[in-house]
Nucleic acid binder design. Sequence first.
RNA 1: GCCCGGGUGGCGGAAUUGGUAGACGCGCUGGAUUCAAAAUCCAGUGAUAGCAAUAUCGUGUGGGUUCGAGCCCCACCCCGGGUACCA
Length: 919
Amino acid sequence: MEYAFNEIEAKWREYWAANRTYRVEIDTDKPKYYVLDMFPYPSGAGLHVGHPLGYIASDIYARYKRCKGYNVLHPMGFDAFGLPAEQYAIQTGQHPRVTTEANIATYKRQLDKLGFCYDWEREVNTSEPGYYRWTQWVFLQLFGSWYNLDTQKAAPIDSLIGIFVQEGNGNVHAACGDVDTFTAEEWQQFEERQQQEILQQYRLAYQSHANVNWCAELGTVLANDEVQDGLSVRGGYPVVKKSMKQWFLRITAYTERLLRELDDLDWPESMKDMQRNWIGRSEGAEMDFPVADSQQSIRIFTTRPDTVFGATFMVLAPEHELIAELTTADQQQAVDEYITYATRRSERERQADVKQVTGVFTGSYCLNPFTQTKIPIWIGEYVLAGYGTGAIMCVPAHDSRDYAFARHFDLPIIRVVDGEQREDGSYDDKEGKLMNSGFLDGLEVREAIRSATDQVEKLGIGERQVNFKMRDAAFSRQRYWGEPFPIYYEDQIARAMPVGELPLTLPEIDSYKPTSDGEPPLARADNWQYQDYPVETDTMPGYAGSSWYFFRYMDPANNEAFVSKQAQEYWENVDLYIGGAEHATGHLLYARFWTHFLYDLGYVNQKEPFKKLINQGMIQGRSNFVYRIEGSNEFVSHGLKDQYKTTAIHVDVNIVSNDILDVEAFKKWQPDYKDASFVLENGKYHCGYEVEKMSKAKYNVVNPDHIVDQYGADTFRMYEMFLGPIEIHKPWDTQGIEGVHRFLKKFWRLFFDENGSFNLSTEEPSDQELKVLHKTIKKVSDDIDRFAFNTAISAFMVCVNELTSLKCRKQAVLKDLTILIAPFAPHIAEELWHLMGFGSTVTLAAYPDYEEAYIKEDSFTYPVAINGKVRVKIDFPLDWSKDEIEKEVIGHNDVQRWLDGKTHKKFILVPGRMINLVV
RNA sequence: GCCCGGGUGGCGGAAUUGGUAGACGCGCUGGAUUCAAAAUCCAGUGAUAGCAAUAUCGUGUGGGUUCGAGCCCCACCCCGGGUACCA
């Protein structure tokens, strides 16, 4: 009987759906396991062959865990708000909801063909009001909370107001913006507007005028992780800094915790490093430098307080607030020109020529607080207003940027650390002894940092300070297709809508463009009001809905809460999360932040959302090329192309087989090539190839639907895993799929006799057969446990080959093998299980165990070294004693020959390793 | 520049952590079956020399440690990812 994969797969697909086979419920008798994929944005292009890689891996693991007796939650859903649907809506007028729903339908159809064991009854869609109602709810919690640094926890804002009423803010330690100290009486006397403005400084979701990343092309503000090299990640449009009033999330309150908790997560080190770098913690000190002939002083931040004796000038960011005051009359013009120049430069320009040194002297001086030397105050764009205090002391001898600045403007350089000074640069290392530094002389850098900081604190001119690179997250988007803010404005004060009013649904509008006076699209809505008060017209960014969706799967239909306490306490958090590495500093960080926050308020019992994380690599395209001889319609084969002047042209990979071009198909492919002629090698046209991103323009896109039609989902699943380790990028090569398909056919054939009828024996398996089986069980389960699915599949291939040559047709063996393979190839396994006459499904079967006795080798090969050189290798039974082995070795013919009559002085046996004879 | 990864046949990749390098698959070569093809099966396949057994070389380069190194140490080269005036 032929392996009719199409029939088999269709049959079981329908069976699983009809019987709701993969439905999961809370079951306190079983341990839980939560396997999650990063849910996709349903784009219009549908899936290509690269997308399912991670889904297949997680599905295999989910099925495996289920066989192991776990109650497995393995859901899927859609991150459905986003720019592409809205851009499409602007062009066509079609409502983004319509596009999104159509795309979701396509995705689901494609996903279902691959045999995933999702519980579709738990599907989430971030753009549905039933879902985003809770996104809005979380936002209101953030808006209604502040961060108490004393308890290191978020708390309701009411508790803060309580403190203000009682005692003012003098003793409050909070993660907050700039606020002056006030007393309880003062608080009571403030007008409401003033009170609200103060509270904004404390809220975890707050509005602020700040420099944000503005992308004119997209008509919206972007978060830092959505900008790369001064361009928007989506679309690649220029981004400029612009001061706007925007919503922000105070993620910076959580920096220490987000950093600390990373240590305990089972994530790839690279991923943790990326988050660590992004958070960018650095310890140092703030220090006041008095301005000469003035009462003013300038506060700087440095990580090298030990080098203060080498500070020969100071640089302020162009936006620094004291510049106007410090600029002298004769420098006024130069400073004005410089500031104009600096503010006009876009982010992109600034980044493009980082190496270029620019700056201007203010005309003023300040005093080095340790040496009392007068040092000039400069302005330079390399000092960033947003980091530290926006001012630095410059030690050109030990900081390469200060060095470049000093050389460019001819400022003095004083060495204070004794290190291997390079001729043409600074010595930046934190190693060496201090010199020219008064009381620090002779100390090691590390000691000197401590000592200098102590001195700063003792003198009362500064204190220890920890700074972070990470900024608060911009949370406003001037777009339509996102969650509306449940915020209205009364007397221009932002106020939370009552939770009972949620969801605040998106209004229907006539066009998705901004209004003519630049307002966001929501401003077009009629009646966009709450009780006659205007409602916020910005919407939330893409990462809002994805920052908490993993909780919603636990209890997706709940109308009372974002997740019930019971469901959350059972499912806890995600045990295994699979997705792309590109989310390191975006989604993964925001999701951690929201989870910590919800934990603080007692809504969930887990601090971290994702215990284990695996990044799947990208599947790249493998493009083929033909080489046209310039100025002709003649194409030369790859091996001969160097003899001509040629242009490489992408050719459709579907008309190339094993890099050999189907010449006739090529002529028909495009009208231009109808009359093409060819220079062949051995009668064949060989194409060149290159590995690149899969894209239509490169004619290298492979659609999973076609592969599934041709080979079946089981083959497709196994082949994607067989291609290589999950984490690495690898090119798709359709040619190789034959091997896996052949294997499945061979596996299938094990169950049928020469006449093609299903025929298994109920005889007891032989020791040899059991050995093959148990070896495979051990290897495969070990490999699955360490996510080495490619080598697990190799083990299956070896096993099937061995059983084939043993002509094994025993049910006892094949049944176990079938269960073993079920996570990889669920359809074929289910069909065989059914043919064997077992009523229940493979899905619920217990994963087979192995016996140590069968997997043990019965002999061991020892390399025998004589005077350190290995001469022979000899097999020994495992249970031999040292003496028996020694006797055997000495008696061995080859050893005798090498010993050549001499006797050995020493016999060294390294168990399990080798034997050494010293003569 | 800095921080992570990684360099193994014609190709994708194994080598369970210092013990027979190249598992498994693709491709290629030869053979069986077939009128022929497809499908299937068998054998071979790192390089060089040889009819052969076999020998020598071989995991980016150069050194080192070890009886033994793809794996550990030092220096360097190349590729991929992240990040970039963060003081």
